[in-house]
Computed example of a mutant assay.
Amino acid sequence: MKPQHWPLYGLRIRTPRLELRLPDLELLDDLASVAADGVHAPDTMPFTVPWTDCPPAERGRAVFQHVLSTVANWSDRDWALSLAVVHEGRVVGRQDLMARDFAVTGEVSTGSWLGLAHQGRGIGTEMRAAVLHLAFAGLGAGVAVSSAMTDNPRSLGVSRRLGYLPDGLTVAALRGDRVRLQRLRLERARWEEHRAVEVTVEGLDGCRAMFGA
């Protein structure tokens, strides 16, 4: 497609194994199918919003609608870049980069999920490294924050490998129960010290202003 009126569709972030891009309708349908096939074991819930509790068809539809909503609701003061992660020509998951009042705060946050069939291969670390490069090197961010449940060692391990430091605990309600989350923080200087993944970005100049950068 020719992204004349929405240049974010021309943004490409590449690592040695992955390409991240805003999905067009065909790629978004593939992404929704990955979600429908499952992103975690049925006896766990790693997300504070339990969007995966619904049946597979509804789960896929919810992902499809959510990604479209991030485009429809975008503003340079409140944005969520929801990227499809492509590995060896196949969609394997989603990586989000988000910010509010980025021009003032210089702070971004991240969120992600991977299809069950693609977990345990280091893809999660590589795709987070990709959007951190976009944030710090591309947009000039000063801080990246994240959080994960204290009993989610995989997510916490990704953050640790990329240089995040603990930033306190918080609590949330999940399915009527109280859960604890570990907040995490990555300052720009520490990101530079822990960079280990080669990342290239294409198409940013055409959409940089959309981030409030």
Rank of each mutant, 00 (worst) to 15 (best):
G38F: 01
A41W: 08
A36P: 06
T52H: 09
A36H: 01
F47C: 04
A72G: 08
W51R: 02
E58D: 09
E58V: 03
M45R: 06
G60W: 00
E58P: 03
V67D: 04
P42G: 14
V67K: 14
N73G: 08
R59N: 14
N73F: 04
G38L: 02
W51E: 06
P50C: 10
Q65F: 02
G60I: 05
T44H: 10
P46E: 05
R59K: 10
P55R: 06
T70E: 11
A57N: 04
A57V: 14
V49D: 11
A62S: 15
P46Y: 13
H66I: 01
V71F: 00
R59F: 03
T70A: 05
M45L: 06
R59S: 05
P55L: 06
C54E: 02
D53M: 12
D43C: 08
M45N: 10
H40R: 11
P56L: 02
A41F: 07
D53P: 03
R61D: 12
R59I: 01
S69K: 11
C54Q: 13
L68N: 13
A62V: 04
A35D: 03
D53F: 03
H40K: 12
T48Q: 09
T44Q: 15
W74G: 13
T48P: 00
A36R: 00
H40Y: 15
S69L: 08
V39L: 12
V71E: 10
P50G: 10
H40P: 08
D53H: 05
F64V: 03
A41L: 15
A62L: 15
V63M: 09
H66G: 09
M45W: 03
R59H: 10
P55N: 05
D53A: 12
T52A: 12
T70R: 15
D43R: 02
V49W: 08
A72L: 04
M45K: 01
A36Q: 01
R59T: 01
Q65S: 13
V71P: 00
H66V: 02
E58A: 15
V71G: 02
A36L: 05
D53I: 09
F64H: 15
P42D: 13
L68F: 03
H66N: 12
V49Q: 07
D43Y: 08
H40C: 12
P56I: 04
A36T: 04
V71Y: 00
T52V: 13
V71R: 07
V39Y: 03
P55A: 06
A57G: 01
Q65V: 07
F47I: 05
A35L: 11
A57C: 00
D53V: 11
V63A: 03
S69Y: 06
S69N: 12
A41T: 07
M45C: 15
A72D: 09
R61E: 14
W51A: 10
M45F: 02
W74I: 07
A35P: 09
W74C: 09
P46D: 05
N73M: 08
G38S: 11
T48V: 12
A72E: 13
A62M: 12
P46H: 11
E58Y: 01
A41G: 07
Q65P: 00
W51N: 03
W74L: 06
T70L: 04
G38Y: 00
